[in-house]
Amino acid sequence: MLIESGSPVAADNRIGISLTINGQQRELQVAPWTTLLDLLRERLDLTGTKKGCDHGQCGACTVLVNGTRVNSCLTLAVMKDGAEITTVEGLAGLANDGAGSNGLHPIQAAFIEHDAFQCGYCTPGQLCSSVGLMNEGHAKSRDEIREAMSGNICRCGAYTNIVDAIEDVMQGEAR
C-alpha cells in the first residue's frame, strides 16, 4: 500500500502531502476529508478561490491542477499529493512573458477591460477556467468557448463579456 492513514476517529488522522501552490512548494498535514478548496480557503488563507456550491454545480472553485482546470470542491487534497496547483492568486505568475506592466495575467486584464464580472464572486473560477480552456486548446469559435465555459455559472450574467475577454486574449496570443 502506498499510504494508509490512521484510524478515522483519531484526532491526529493527518497525512503528509506535498503541493506546489502558485509556484511555492508546501509540505502539509491534511485530513483525508479535507478538500483542496477548504485547504486553500480555511488553512492557507487563499480565499481567492470561491465556494459557490461545494458540489461541482457552479465552477466558482475552479483551479488548475497540473495545468488542468478542475473543481477544487470535489477534489480531496490528499489525493493530489505532488501536484502543482494554480489559483487566481497565482495566475499572474503563469503569464507566458511575465505579467503585464499592471502585474496581471492577460486574461485578468481582459476581464477588467471587457467588464466580464460584476459581483466578482464567480470571477476567480471563470479566470482559472479560461486559462484551462486555453491550455486545452479545443475551443476556438465563440460557440465553442460558450460551451466550454458552461461549467462556470455567473449569476450576474456577464457571459457575453466573458466570451469577449477570452476571445480577445486568444486572438492576442494568435497574433
Binding site: 478561490t49 485578468q108 466578482g120
Partner: peptide
C-alpha cells in the same frame, strides 16, 4: 472599467 476590478480579478476582494 471598474475601480474594484483589480481586487476582484486577483482574488484579493474578500
Amino acid at each position: 472599467s471598474r475601480v474594484d476590478g483589480p481586487a476582484k480579478v486577483t482574488g484579493l476582494a474578500r
